[in-house]
Design a protein around this nucleic acid. Structure first.
Lengths: 197, 197
DNA sequence: AAATATGCCTAACAGATGTTAGTTTTAACG
DNA sequence: CGTTAAAACTAACATCTGTTAGGCATATTT
């Protein structure tokens, strides 16, 4: 029974850490801050985690895996480029909405990873972005999108919009995450899409 | 002559600090790091600045003033909403492009300001955002933009796109900042704009 | 030449940082 | 009840943190 219970408490620690990292940033969050949030002493944290950075690694790479999984599923579908893009966007937002706190950490704090983890993380990230870029390029090739758009700019704009959502989105508000995904993709896709003659 | 020379060396310090804050983040940047970048001792920095946070304040509020100035000029023009939005976007990007380093710090590190500066900063920011929101709402009222768009979502998407530019934009690359502004506003505005019947 | 101001130095401070070692309490199971 | 494992504790470490105090050298101004 050790592993199960261990995980449970360990994950409690990691979740609280995510909240803290989100609020104050990784570097400005001390292990004593985290311990206090959990009502224990700083040294006690090390029964559950190996180091401060291990927590960050967990948060970043777990989120990365979720994003990848979501896009895997979208890519397997046999639909138009704009449909794929829309599904990719909605999937991305759904993954974020499932854990806004971890998403914010994933986005803002990953740079505090040390090597070689940082390198690995950035490779995963560029790969993910490139898969979105490929969808846009496919859309251009098939005449679905305007042919004079800068794909790098487009995909970066897309990711900027997506990644800042955790900063302003209020899950208690009147607009739900699926709705956001739909509106956002509509806004972007219709900006990219060729006007029907 | 004191003030002029003082400013010159002082600004040298602030600029190097901006580079450091951008690379490592404010909290992870030590005064000894900064001193080393300048080839002096940490204590020597205090001949030029009062505190670490004073540097951050300078960077954040100077950028805020630049953004405000740019939008002031746009608002005074008597043009359509989409034209105003376009000019606002281009202006914002031009201000960022003038100092990408300070822009990145402005965006990512402002949260490390202490009170009451943080409060002041956030007020400036929300005010700036609301002025953009007002332009979009004007566009809706005058029938220029779709009437069923969520203005909060739109304006947040806009700012996300704008604010992440310093993260990926390469000033040495083939696409210049004015071009980015034009393409970006085209992409967004044509996504917002009502299709002509 | 004297006076002044600028920029940098060394030395030191008080407190915070991540982490370790070893021990004790708490709870579950046979 | 005794055993075992989990989770917490106290004490301490070495290092790093922002910052102050006071002094010295260089260059500019009077």
């Amino acid at each position: 029974m050790e592993a199960v219970m261990n995980l449970s408490r360990r994950e409690q620690v990691i979740r609280k850490a995510a909240e803290l990292f989100r609020e104050k940033g990784y570097a400005a969050s001390s292990m004593r801050d985290l311990a206090q949030k959990l009502g224990i002493e700083a040294a006690s944290l090390y029964s559950h985690i190996k180091s401060k950075e291990e927590i960050l690694r967990n948060l970043c790479f777990d989120m990365a895996a979720e994003f990848r999984k979501s896009l895997d599923e979208v890519e397997s579908r046999d639909v138009s480029a704009s449909e794929k893009l829309k599904m990719g966007i909605i999937g991305h937002i759904q993954v974020m909405a499932k854990d806004l706190t971890a998403s914010a950490v994933f986005m803002n704090e990953h740079r505090h990873l040390s090597q070689p983890y940082l390198r690995d993380f950035l490779l995963l990230r560029i790969n993910y972005i490139n898969r979105f870029k490929a969808i846009i390029e496919e859309g251009i090739r098939l005449g679905e999108f305007k042919e004079n758009i800068d794909t790098k700019l487009s995909v970066m704009t897309l990711f900027s919009s997506l990644n800042w959502m955790p900063q302003w989105y209020d899950p208690e508000g009147k607009i739900d995450s699926l709705n956001i995904g739909q509106q956002l993709s509509d806004m972007l896709v219709n900006g990219l899409k060729k006007q029907k003659p």
